[in-house]
C-alpha cells in the first residue's frame, strides 16, 4: 500500500451502506448545469420533464435531451404539452442500450448537450431524460451534475426495497403517481420507509403530477442544486 495515499473521506466497503456520492462534480465555467432523469419504463420521466419545463418557463434558459427508443415520441409529447420550443429538444439514439448511453459511453448524449449549448448561447439548464431502464441504470458523473431517479407506485411498492444504484445513489428519488396508490394496493408508508432505509440521508419526494402538474417540490429541489447565478 502506498504510504502517501491519503483518503479525504471515510471508505466503506459495506455494500448495504448508503451515503451520498463523494465525487462532487464541478460544473465547468460557462456550461449549462446538467440534470439527469432516469428510472424504469412508464414511471413518469417524460411527464416530470414536461412539468419541470413548465415550472421553469420564463425563469431558466432550458433545453432537454431525450433518449427514448421512439425517437420523436418524447419530443412530440413535449411539443404537444407546449412547454418547450422544438429547437430546444434533442433526441439521441441508444442502440437498444439506454443505460450504456447514459453511463458507459456517454458520447451521444454529450454531443446532444453541446449541440444545444451551441444553438442556445447562455443555456443554464439541460435536462437529460434517460430511456426507461432497470434499477441499476445510473447516469455517469461525466454526463450530469445531479440525477433524479423516478419510480412510481404502480410499479409495485417493493421497488425502493429492491435497491440498486438508481434507488440508493441518485441525488433525488421521486416516487410518482401517489394518487394511484389506493387503486393498485400500494402502501406509501412502506415505500417511504424503505426508500429512507436504502438511501440514508439522500432526499425522497413523493408526488402526483395529476394533483400538482408543475411538480413544485421537485422544481424547488432542482433550484436548490443550481449553481449560484452571478449574472
Amino acid at each position: 500500500m502506498q504510504a502517501d495515499h491519503v483518503h479525504t473521506h471515510p471508505v466503506n466497503f459495506d455494500p448495504t451502506w448508503s451515503e451520498p456520492d463523494h465525487h462532487e462534480p464541478a460544473a465547468e465555467q460557462g456550461r449549462a448545469y446538467r440534470i439527469g432523469i432516469g428510472g424504469p419504463v412508464g414511471s413518469g420521466k417524460t411527464a416530470l420533464t414536461a412539468a419541470l419545463c413548465r415550472a421553469f418557463r420564463g425563469e431558466l434558459n432550458l433545453a432537454v435531451v431525450t433518449n427514448d427508443i421512439y425517437t420523436t415520441e418524447d419530443a412530440d409529447f413535449l411539443r404537444r404539452a407546449g412547454v418547450l420550443d422544438v429547437d430546444r429538444i434533442e433526441a439521441v439514439q441508444t442502440g437498444c442500450c439506454p443505460h450504456t448511453a447514459i453511463r458507459d459511453d456517454i458520447t451521444a448524449n454529450l454531443d446532444a448537450v453541446e449541440t444545444l449549448e451551441e444553438r442556445h448561447p447562455g443555456l443554464e439548464l439541460v435536462i437529460i431524460e434517460s430511456g426507461g431502464d432497470n434499477l441499476t441504470a445510473v447516469f455517469s458523473r461525466g454526463l450530469v451534475d445531479r440525477q433524479i431517479f423516478v419510480v412510481d407506485v404502480a410499479g409495485g411498492d417493493k421497488v425502493p426495497r429492491k435497491g440498486g444504484p438508481g434507488v440508493t445513489t441518485a441525488d433525488l428519488l421521486v416516487i410518482n403517481k401517489i394518487d394511484l396508490a389506493p387503486l393498485v394496493g400500494a402502501d406509501l408508508e412502506v415505500m417511504a420507509s424503505d426508500a429512507a432505509r436504502m438511501r440514508g440521508e439522500l432526499p425522497v419526494i413523493a408526488q402526483s403530477l395529476a394533483e400538482t402538474p408543475d411538480a413544485p417540490v421537485v422544481a424547488d429541489w432542482v433550484r436548490s442544486q443550481l449553481p449560484v447565478r452571478t449574472g
Binding site: V92, Q93, T94, G95, C97, T100, A101, D104, D105, I106, T107, A108, D111
Partner: peptide, 11 residues
C-alpha cells in the same frame, strides 16, 4: 466494445 467512442449506437 467498451471503448467509449459512441460505437454502440451504430448497427
Amino acid at each position: 466494445s467498451r471503448f467509449p467512442g459512441g460505437g454502440h449506437v451504430h448497427s
